[in-house]
Nucleic acid binder design. Structure first.
Lengths: 102, 102
DNA sequence: CCGGTTGTTCGACCAAGAGCGAACCACCAG
DNA sequence: CTGGTGGTTCGCTCTTGGTCGAACAACCGG
């Protein structure tokens, strides 16, 4: 349905850029706290749905998240495995720092 | 002489944003390969000196680098210790991924 | 004093991107 | 068929930010 980069297409600068936005970082933290992925609606980040869709697209195209269909709605989840392979340790340290800062 | 954030003022999103630019990432990789810091001129990244000055300012104000005088010229170096304290593991994983991608 | 080196700052330009509402699509329940 | 839900896409505005040249400042060497 939508574009996801292959694991080897994940670019460091794209990922860093995706994570450098406070709203997207909140989304990622939110996703990290959920095993099964979240419906877009379950991400209460206080922006309009078009803006949320935009941020999810940025995250998806950077390779940070995966979106899959589940019935009538999309489930968004972190690509922890692919990120760890391409950028080992990065997601963990970002999440750790984000948790500490909060 | 110039503004450097205190260690506790270093913000994750600022650091991620600073590192998400390819030119700044090259500068950081370059600095990581040098013990003593580099004169701005020693950073051959192929931009004009005003642009270089701008990027160094972004890195400095995000807390990624430190600039100190040495005689008549400035020496730029990574704030590895402060970054490790505030954002443990982040710089290492970014540098590791950047090295792997190159 | 007069260049040359090193770097910052300023002003302008232009591209990228965040934000929103509106329109739209796909789907399910009546 | 009609409505509601979940989500994307499309314009549009406005801000951010990368880029450069020019001007400036501080300093050292003749």
């Amino acid at each position: 349905m939508v574009r996801h980069p292959l694991p080897e297409e994940i670019e460091l600068t794209d990922v860093l850029h995706a994570l450098s936005d406070p709203i997207r970082l909140r989304i990622v933290r939110n996703l990290a706290a959920s095993d099964e992925g979240r419906c877009c609606n379950g991400l209460s980040v206080g922006v309009s749905k078009s803006t949320l869709s935009h941020h999810l697209k940025v995250l998806r195209e950077a390779g940070v998240t995966r979106t899959r269909m589940s019935g009538t709605q999309r489930l968004v989840s972190l690509r922890e495995d692919d990120l760890e392979e391409r950028l080992p340790g990065l997601l963990a340290s970002v999440l750790g720092a984000a948790r500490a800062a909060a």
